[in-house]
Design a protein around this nucleic acid. Structure first.
Length: 466
RNA sequence: GGCCCUAUAGUCUAAUGGCUAGGACGCGACCCUCUCAAGGUCGAGAUACGGGUUCAAUCCCCGUUAGGGCUACCA
């Protein structure tokens, strides 16, 4: 049975990188008819919050990544919050102590900090010196539990993405497995949980590759079977530094709020570090069908917002128009007040080919809602001259006679007028566009006029000198 | 500092020990056209550097450089 897990620590919203780790795990599980488990690693009690748990859950839900076991959907391997598993960790820590594979360490953080500084000065590896390793007497006071790293051995990580990676145990510390407050550290809790939850494949970020030997050594100490490991490359910002808030929106939910569709975000992050032939656009089912760890790339990828935008525009164009209308509606209400829904629907449909991001809709549409919309400098150039005033006046007179006021009839009228005036269509349309929208860029003029309606159009054209 | 990972255009990637190194975003031009989009056609643009192995290296090996990660009583 394939069992994988996504194990975020709830210290903030679901990050793009976390979202992709979740996605790869989820795709791997779904592809193999396995289970996808969500485990909350909240052992950092100072930084973990309940709110963060909720935002992570919402982020996953928005992406459509559902979990078979985890918060709100219990399986047989819970609890799925690490803070609710404290007795379990204690039991296994005690076992290590009893077997002489771990020991109590009474060094204070201050002492350790001092030693680290000294080592740095002497340009030596800042590594725990094993002071408490063979303590005969208990000096009392607070203590941590350290793992007794087997020295003189090589620990090999067999990674599904990177191949074989070797580490010398001697370079690894006697790392802490239980903190002085009795809470296990990440490396210890993850191993205990992954074993107990029968995780078959550990798929996680590259940043954990260097931690893997520490975990393997624990598996060995317990005599447990190793899971398969797959370390996927990191996502970086444009400056090649680890993607973070500094680079703009870094959390999944922010992309929702910015006007991206979840399927676009899924498609984009799936392609970041994974690919299938020359294909760019994948449905969710295609991703499940085609995803394999073998096709995961080894190199870190830079998050490219432009490509995400392109994909998003793509999905907007292929989505059901009603859905896009629904997404635009609250934004337009917010910007321009409550509006007639049928009117909104007509407007949004004019912009389906023009939106890359849903939220752009408000900036594109002020002239549909206000008569004192802003005027571009370029648009002004089409107005004010004697010629343009004449054109607009003539146009206004002709428009009165167009009935019903629909684009086919409007088009006929424009073409007739152009012929009568012996000018090209553009000569009439450009000033008209400027007058009714204040812009030089709009959807096709006949559509715009129809949607605006005869009254509004007439009113706007009337503003110009007789 | 030590250890580990990575290296194909600005970005994401494909490819084989042997064709003009393929695709996508972005960029430019053109077509379409009432403008902007969308769509279509075309174009510029890459194997980090230096050594090997080989008849032949983007691919295999070594080194350098660059970037990233770990080196916490964070995860």
């Amino acid at each position: 049975m394939i069992r994988v897990r996504f194990a975020p620590s709830p210290t903030g919203a679901l990050h793009i990188g976390g979202g992709r780790t979740a996605l790869f795990n989820w795709l791997f599980a779904r592809h193999n008819n396995g289970k996808f488990i969500l485990r909350i690693e909240d052992t950092d009690r100072t930084r973990s919050t309940k709110e963060a748990v909720q935002t992570i859950l919402h982020g996953l839900e928005w992406l459509g990544i559902d979990w078979d076991e985890g918060p709100n959907s219990d399986g047989n391997f819970g609890p799925y919050f690490q803070t609710e598993r404290m007795e379990i960790y204690k039991k296994y820590a005690d076992q290590l102590i009893k077997e002489g594979k771990a020991y109590y360490c009474f060094c204070t953080p201050e002492m350790l900090e001092e030693k680290r500084k000294l080592a740095a000065q002497k340009k030596e590896a800042p590594k725990y010196d094993g002071a408490c390793r063979e303590l005969s007497k208990n000096p009392g006071g607070p203590f941590v539990i350290r793992f007794k790293m087997p020295i003189g051995e090589i620990t090999e990580v067999e990674d599904l993405v990177r191949g074989k990676v070797k580490f010398e145990n001697d370079l690894l510390d006697d790392f802490v497995v239980v903190k002085s407050d009795g809470v296990p550290t990440y490396n210890f809790a993850a191993v205990v949980d992954d074993h107990l939850m029968e995780i078959s494949h550990v798929i996680r970020g590259d940043d954990h590759l260097s931690n893997t030997p520490r975990q393997i050594v624990l598996y060995k100490a317990f005599g447990w079977k190793l899971p398969a490991f797959a370390h996927i490359p990191m996502i970086l910002g444009p400056d090649k530094a680890r993607l973070s808030k500094r680079h703009g929106a870094a959390s999944v939910i922010e992309y929702r709020d910015l006007g991206y569709l979840p399927e676009a975000v899924i498609n984009y992050i799936a392609k970041l570090g994974w690919g299938y032939k020359d294909q760019e656009v994948f449905s969710r089912q295609e991703l499940i069908d085609l995803f394999t760890l073998e096709a995961v790339s080894k190199n870190a990828a830079i998050f490219d917002i432009e490509k995400l935008k392109w994909l998003n525009g793509n999905y907007i164009r292929t989505a059901l128009p009603e859905r896009i209308v629904d997404l635009c509606e609250p934004l337009l209400f917010d910007a321009y007040g409550k509006q007639d829904l049928a009117y909104i629907s007509k407007i949004v449909r004019l912009f389906l080919d023009r939106l890359k991001v849903i939220n752009e809709i408000t900036d594109l549409t002020p002239y549909y809602f206000n008569d004192d919309f802003p005027f571009d400098e370029k648009a002004k150039k089409y107005l004010g001259s004697e010629d343009s005033s004449k054109i607009i006046n003539t146009l206004k007179d002709k428009l009165v006679g167009v009935a019903p006021f629909i684009k086919d009839n409007i088009e006929k009228m424009f073409k007739q007028l152009a012929e009568e005036m012996k000018v090209k269509l553009g000569v009439i349309i450009h000033p008209c566009r400027a007058a009714v929208s204040g812009r030089v860029e709009t959807p096709p003029m006949y559509d715009v006029l129809e949607v605006l309606g005869k009254d509004r159009v007439n009113k706007r054209l009337s503003k110009y000198p007789q």
